[in-house]
Design a protein around this nucleic acid. Structure first.
Lengths: 120, 120
DNA sequence: CCGGATCCTAAGTGATACTG
DNA sequence: CAGTATCACTTAGGATCCGG
């Protein structure tokens, strides 16, 4: 069983990475810190992600309990994503990784769409 | 060119993940925090990694400047790996990730070979 | 002892088109 | 609007053998 192997982490760091290691997971969580967002809003905020990838990553985050998904039954239907309490608990981790990554990228003189200051 | 795309991070967090995201990279760094180690010692500390994987991950860490590699010209030859200053700079990041991951795994009642207390 | 070379599988990712 | 289906591609990761 592959699930067994996924539980065989060498260290807790790997467990953390298994939850936020996806291609767009950090940036999704990052955007949701400030406020809950609709699928379309996330799509607009993360242009590089195709609908499939966005859904996939959102589904993964939902499965791991980091975000919640609420469907608003209206026309047209909309879905809103927000951080759970568990999801909020990982903010400090993202924060530290973002700070370190920013310093690292500054050293390389590289910019990214989402920088630290966006958190406010 | 793929290298271009790899520089197109959505956020600094991804940049951080690109350096420590490998399968055995966190655990390698973790072990090197306390002291420089020989290849064989790392091999013993990380039984799950095959020689190829260990070399591969070490090479990756060396390329990104996080560890340094020194060959001791003796019979039999030995190689010693140690953290660079740059590598040491990421310790706090690993520390936070480890702490969070430990709490997470405790909630799941799961253990890993390398826990927080091993850092001393 | 250290690790490169080769081959292979599985997972992650991407593009496009399509549906409720 | 909010996804799903399908196919193709890339990469990470693993097994095994071989060389310095």
């Amino acid at each position: 069983m592959t699930q067994q192997e996924r539980s065989m982490f060498n260290c807790p760091v790997e467990a953390t990475l298994s939850l936020i290691g996806g291609k767009y997971k950090p940036i999704i969580l990052w955007h949701l810190i400030k406020e809950p967002l609709h699928y379309m809003e996330l799509q607009r905020l993360i242009p590089g992600a195709t609908p499939k990838m966005l859904s996939q990553q959102l589904r993964g985050l939902e499965t791991s309990g980091m975000i919640s998904r609420e469907v608003i039954p209206e026309k047209p239907p909309r879905t809103i994503y927000s951080l759970t309490e568990f999801g909020k608990s990982i903010i400090p981790v993202l924060d530290v990784m973002c700070t370190w990554g920013t310093d690292y990228l500054n050293g390389l003189n590289v910019k990214t769409p989402c920088q630290k200051q966006e958190r406010g």
